[in-house]
Amino acid sequence: MSTSSVPSLTYFQGRGLGQFSRVLLSYLGIPYENITVTEISDALRATLPYGQLPIYRDGDFVLTQSSTIARYIAKKHNFMGKNLEEEFLVDQIVTAIHADIFPAFNNPVPEKLQKLYEKYFGSFEKKLQETGFLVGSSVTLADLYVYVGFDYIRFRGEAALSSELSDEKYPKIAELKKFFESNEGVAKYIKERPETKF
């Protein structure tokens, strides 16, 4: 277990659900300890409320559920929008990616995935074309989530029907990707992360 004074994020070596918070912490320039494991040992399992990773530790404060971790960090660093309404508009996008898009990879059905991408990424693209940001008038966790989700599907390749998410079809989301990847912290993280299968 980490004894460091900086927060730690524990997840498998792959990108998966750990990616959202890793990219977020890197983008916000928050130092953190990136702990990777190959399996959940009994000792680790005993500390996990639902037997699942990722887990985030900040001193004595322990948190699981990737969307909860990301929202907690974002809220702490004013990255959830400018007011209450914006916070919950961000939340609905974060929830959509976690609850609707990610589970679809478990049993991928090409026709279903295609429709799913059109429905969600189509709506994100439209919003970005209209206002430049997914929520409000500045970048928020919602934009970062859409970038990470989009990028992750492309990384997963044809098993995840990645060819559906082309720059031509989603030019504004592709711009979002460029925006985040030009951030110093994110660029450093991407350069250093290991090549993995998931």
Partner: peptide, 23 residues
């Protein structure tokens, strides 16, 4: 937003996704 229900409306403010509505 995502062609799904439930939908919560309060004046001009609209929100979908159950956890977001609850929060």
């Amino acid at each position: 937003l995502f062609k799904q229900l439930p939908l919560y409306q309060e004046g001009d403010f609209k929100i979908v996704q159950t956890p977001a509505i609850i929060d």
